[in-house]
Design a protein around this nucleic acid. Sequence first.
DNA 1: CTGTTAGCGCCTTCAT
DNA 2: ATGAAGGCGCTAACAG
Lengths: 338, 338
Amino acid sequence: MPVNHEDKQFTLADVAARANVSIKTVSRVINNEPYVGTATRERVAQAIQELNYHPNRAARRLASKRSHVIGMLVPSIDYPIFPMIILGVEKVMHAHNYEVLVYNTEVAPERTRKGLELLEENQVDGVMVFTVNHISDDELQQLISRQRSAVLVNTVLPGSDAGVVRIDVVRGIELLVQHLLEAGKRRIALLTYPKINYSATERLRGYKQAMTRFDMPIDDDLIIVCEDSLDAVYHIVQEHLKNGSQIDAFVCYNDLMAATVLKACLDLNVPIPEQVAVTGFDNIPFTDLFKCPLTTVNIPWLEVGISAAEMLLSQISGEPTTTELVFTPELVVRESTP
Amino acid sequence: MPVNHEDKQFTLADVAARANVSIKTVSRVINNEPYVGTATRERVAQAIQELNYHPNRAARRLASKRSHVIGMLVPSIDYPIFPMIILGVEKVMHAHNYEVLVYNTEVAPERTRKGLELLEENQVDGVMVFTVNHISDDELQQLISRQRSAVLVNTVLPGSDAGVVRIDVVRGIELLVQHLLEAGKRRIALLTYPKINYSATERLRGYKQAMTRFDMPIDDDLIIVCEDSLDAVYHIVQEHLKNGSQIDAFVCYNDLMAATVLKACLDLNVPIPEQVAVTGFDNIPFTDLFKCPLTTVNIPWLEVGISAAEMLLSQISGEPTTTELVFTPELVVRESTP
DNA sequence: CTGTTAGCGCCTTCAT
DNA sequence: ATGAAGGCGCTAACAG
């Protein structure tokens, strides 16, 4: 059952008639343009009030070719960093009178394609694309090039002139590995997902680089690539634990994985951090309240959202602007490491 | 710097020209309408491909008066139940070729007004409004009545013909109180926020009803209304604890508050659940991993989103439909209670 | 300062 | 089975 019992949607013409002016004058008032007499403006404002007139955005977009909408493509809205980022983006965009259309891909490549297409059909003035998975550089370039402007977050695309905001993942992993080494751990494993995106490749690169820098051998058995499911993580960890593995630390892909690893360990009564240390990545909320509070790296996600949004706005307005911004993670030591 | 190096946006006319048919025929093909010869359809499809044509949604909306967009008004996207709900809503809506515009109010009434206005200007085919705060029934009715259709979630609006999906909060609180009583707790406090919305009023009602039903006196000192900030929660709890209060259980507004209460207790070395028991509401992720895993009630949030979305779709299509759906919480006992 | 005239790209109605 | 004409509500470009 329809809810609307109200008046029909009024148009500029209705307002114009009521205020005894032309359509264009009303338009001027609506858009805060100059060249309207104070008295006229007053009268028009009154009419707008009385009719409770609201402009039709579809018409406006069609006529003006600018949507005042930007799109966000995020891989998984239910991973807690994305709500924080969205908050940051909205803050900036709403302040500049832009709407934000969020499209959630759930890490599925066909949904990434679909999402970008949808945003294109909506003629968004720009897109922010977060951590693209499973899509080749060429295809991504293709998809992106059809957008009016773009900022990529945690996604690198050589040769693209899209703006880039990224986290220095390599440095983050290095901080964690260094901390573990200083704590006396020696068999430090990297637990990660397949190399389907920037996050994964950089974690691997960071791990290798850190081990090398600190003169540790790189043992392939210590690089554990796990399929992208928390169940899989749980089982792979327990297998290692039960098989008397010598691993004394897990550097995890992110906090969610680390939480699962903690669970797998605690369920087997493996003492943490004495026998096995665990680290996360992202510093999502609540990990400080865990039975074993999680050592991780912090990234100011709200700021990331804000910066990316600001970068996109400058791109849209054609101002010259920084085209790459890098955030450096900060070590947060808690009790899951010695 | 703009990204778009691609071809201009093609239009129906371009496709029509290329396929040697009229604009209308192309339109028919695009919209899967009948009355197009197979050969013609083939030719048009080909042209669409070749030009990589995408319809302009603004134009489509303007001409057809249907946006194929629905709006969601949520109070705080960073509280974990909302991402889950959004996931559910998107699932349904995308399957029906609807887009979802999410507007986050951050519990600010002026942003609620602004959001609804924005959705109206976007001519959304319907809105889903979640837990409205600080807005009078009259005003809400006003705002809602301007929308084409609406589903309210956890918001009651007497006399409105909008659909309603809600959680049986009273029952949820009753489950928690009963559990605490059975565990031997006697000085059970309700820790809640001011009565600015359905959630808060129902929690209070549930508390009183449960106490009465189980023949417990209702002591006003045990009804603690705290300003809406986690800092305030932390301090009010510690004050009670330090002042030698006799409270032996806190029934909290939600899991986030409960997490904070846990922290306040643990920081003072108050043994949980022996001296003080704590319960939450919502069963957000990770509370099972807490130092003191949280007793709470579970609500199937994904389902809530799905149901609300389906209800809205039926409203939009004018089918007769259930107009009220109630979800009943389920008790989840963990270690924060005896 | 104010108004007129064309579209924007698509859908709707009615012919053919 | 296909097409032509008109208009959705607004903005842009130009007149007055």
